[in-house]
Design a binder for these strands. Sequence first.
DNA 1: CTAGGATCCTGTCAGC
DNA 2: TGCTGACAGGATCCTA
Length: 285
Amino acid sequence: MPELPEVETVRRGLKSFILSQKIQKIQVLCAKSFIGQPITGQIQDIRRFGKALVIDLDNGYSLMIHLRMTGQLIYDGKERYAAGHPSENFIDQLPNQQTRVIIKLTNGTLYFNDQRKFGFIKIIPTLEVKQDKFIQKLAKEPWQMTAAELHAKLQKHQKSTIKSAILDQTIICGLGNIYADEALYKAKIHPARKAGTLSPKETKNLLTAAKQVMEKSIASGGSTIRNYVKADGTRGNYLDAFANVYHKDGQACTRCGTTIVKTKIAGRGTHFCPKCQQLKEVSNA
DNA sequence: CTAGGATCCTGTCAGC
DNA sequence: TGCTGACAGGATCCTA
């Protein structure tokens, strides 16, 4: 579920609550959700690599966390901070049916919830974080990448759709299903276009759009389908307020009024405006 | 090498 | 109501 903006929101929030606290005990409720041996140690830093979080301890080890589709991290201390998969009912009571790992800290408790068990926490030596198989393969994030670089990469994917290409974290890092649809809409590119057919200008527009939609989301605390409670009690509402196509099928395009449609591309639900995002070049000079 | 589909797992919702 | 299939904000593995 969480894409780059949500994971960044989790990182910033957690950092403000748990930095320099000590992990006193890790309780694993679901073996599949935890790789390695539970450890203790003081939290030195919280970093993000694409959609993965890394919590560094003072003993040379780190916790690598990937929330995948339905993971949540909830800190319960003097205040409660919850971010990740947006399902309020999961965080009313802690622990609950979806709680997979419980991390006891000096001044509170960190819960790792994950309905579908796709996510995980993995213990690895801090020095080996960058050699991790997943992290090592990640492409640059949109802010570090030039349009020329992206264009060159897309040339290698002549048969793949652009939607599929930008979901590939080894091509460009950070986009997920929501921001892929939103970025393509903003750049006026049909999701089924072949990745290798984008012009340099279209590629540049897409890269800019990707940065913009994610920046906007980070600024508002990450998106949510329903809502979730943040540290200060406010609720994330990115989708309601800012999404133009995601989960907007049947509604009017805010640019042209055409009805937004939903199809399946790259095995994923895909939303777009059939008028703003045409498959063929518009042939009116 | 790329590309598409199945797969991991649990829960929810639309449609019979 | 009760069942059934489709689907879900991700990534990997398997196959061609």
